[in-house]
Design a binder for these strands. Structure first.
Lengths: 343, 343
DNA sequence: TTGTACGCGTTATCAT
DNA sequence: ATGATAACGCGTACAA
């Protein structure tokens, strides 16, 4: 004997029962399968609405072996670059029927591993990752490629060869442009504040920057180079150290805008004239860089463009299972010099 | 006859077969059910690892009728307040075993409805929402409460009574504090740039602000009041209009920092002295407000604190199904005046 | 055009 | 301590 629990979830079986048809018919009708007559389709849909039926993605996913969910691991949601990236990615994927599970590693390798494992069991249809600052091993992502789940790194990508799709900014060129620009401004004593070299973006910016200086016959003074997490606190420490010696730099290239902003504030506090005595460059074109005075010369990474490319690649791969294994050349998103008042 | 597809997904049945035990035993062993002996548990786990088994959340969710996924709908991920909120919420929920599906409405009611519907079918265990700017009807959320899925609004909450949990900032008080502060600074001719009143936060800030002025015997000059989406472009338009008449205001209360920043930049361009000729207040304590010069007096909304309260409420409700229907009083997160150089 | 029958992977329940 | 079985809700080959 069947009870009628009033608030229980209705399934397609309940609809079928109520209508005297089979569950298969209901399923097909709801999915607009052309093999169902217009009449029954309408009848079914009305009944479904009437009974408060809702599609069960969990059952559907199980059956179809696809969740329509894409996993995203990002160092921090609140970083300007990533927040814009997420916005754009979400806006591209949503209309295509994909939901985004957004997770943040907080720049901890351990958390990143944990998240990878969780998303792995969650059967995401694809995983998109921007690596934590000190991630140098990638085995926690092996499962995805082994099981044929598309894996894509963007921005902070593996520094060693790894089987995955890659979309990155042209960080080498960003460093190069920055170096060229400072040299064009006739800087001779250039300081450099970078993130740790375990992270692809800082590694490549450093290479490009070094190359630019080398072209001009300059080399980086190791006393004036800092490699650490690019927080405001760390920036102030390095800046104090930088200006405590007898010889002062005439330029600073900071590998993010948080650091560049700190440099401007530090200079203001110390009465250092910008750009006359000190030129400053940042990286990312964070809104703060344009709002502070003097506004900071920086490098735009075009996060929206990067998200579009990531979305495009994902959708292409997800549609076409065939080429899931063809990891063609990395995609490289150009960068742009934004000239402002600090140089 | 069973084929051995090498790359096929292994299930607990495969493990059971390989070990000569039942699937139930495997399931229990993997879930650390105490009714399984230490020996078999170990045996099973080893075999599972060896066979490359991974837990299937989809099947598990179907069986358990819970997805361990929490849905989040936010106007825009890239708004400072929300990006910080998301960071904090995620950091609280992740360790408890919940994943966050982050979606953005782009402040479009239609998108919000679409997202609600999708998340509804996705069987999220709970839904957290900050409403779009012009959402005044809430029927697209009815399904959640009807089916007993916890629904929680934060920040931008319904303006009409609606059965859901609510965690909000003290926007009335924020407006009041702002008004009191400007009056204490002896402002007499106060302009006001607000978001649309369809949105709870702007409505309440307006009420608080109006009340503060009324206490001082002032009333808002309607020519100096603007209600529109708080973008930089709209701000500039309103500011130009504001200063085109013969009588100029001596203070502006802007209901977000984007607008306050625009006001400072506009004043700079027009040669208006701040704070002598014009005092400016913003809202949110966006990093830009502290970086611009002069730094802007604003109201801090404590997004992290709000996220903690939301997480706490969610976890409590998700653990204790019993009280899923008790929508006790709204939680109100205090706000703080951040006094800077523009007042 | 519609129905039948079964599988997807996991777990609760009852039995041993 | 472990096994056998039956759901969970949906989609699809195959049959009618």
């Amino acid at each position: 004997m069947k009870e009628n629990k009033p608030n229980a979830e209705k399934s397609i079986v309940d609809i079928a029962l109520a209508l005297g048809v089979s569950a298969a018919t209901v399923s097909r009708a709801l999915n607009d399968n052309p093999r169902i007559s217009e009449a029954t389709r309408k009848k079914v849909k009305e009944k479904a609405k009437e009974m408060g039926y809702r599609h069960n993605s969990m059952a559907s996913s199980l059956r179809n072996r696809r969740s329509n969910i894409i996993g995203l691991i990002v160092p921090r949601v609140s970083m300007y670059f990533h927040s814009v990236f997420i916005t754009a990615l979400q806006n591209k994927l949503q209309p295509e029927g994909y939901n985004l599970i957004v997770c943040q590693s907080n720049d901890s390798v351990a958390v990143e591993q944990q998240l990878a494992s969780t998303l792995y069991s969650s059967r995401v249809d694809a995983l998109v990752v921007s690596l934590a600052l000190y991630t140098e091993e990638y085995h926690h992502f092996d499962g995805f490629t082994n099981h044929g789940t598309p894996l894509l790194f963007y921005d902070r990508v593996p520094t060693k060869s790894y089987a995955a799709y890659i979309v990155k900014g042209d960080d080498y060129r960003g460093g190069l442009i920055a170096g060229d620009h400072l040299i064009e401004m006739e800087c001779k004593k250039i300081a450099y504040i970078s993130g740790p070299l375990s992270c692809s973006i800082y590694k490549e910016r450093t290479e490009g920057f070094t190359h630019a200086l080398a072209k001009a016959g300059l080399h980086l003074n190791t006393d004036w180079c800092f490699y650490h997490e690019l927080t405001a606190e760390n920036a102030w420490n390095s800046l104090r150290q930088l200006f405590s010696g007898k010889e002062k730099p005439d330029a600073i290239f900071a590998s993010n805008d948080t650091t560049a902003v700190a440099a401007v504030q530090f200079s203001r506090e110390q009465g250092i004239k910008i750009p006359q005595e000190l030129k400053i460059m940042g990286y990312s074109n964070d809104p703060r860089s344009s709002i502070i005075s003097p506004a900071i010369t920086t490098i735009d990474q075009h996060p929206t463009e990067m998200a579009h490319r990531v979305a495009h690649k994902l959708l292409q791969v997800l549609k076409d299972k065939r080429q899931a294994q063809e990891y063609d050349a990395q995609e490289i998103v150009p960068v742009t010099l934004i000239r402002r008042m600090t140089t």
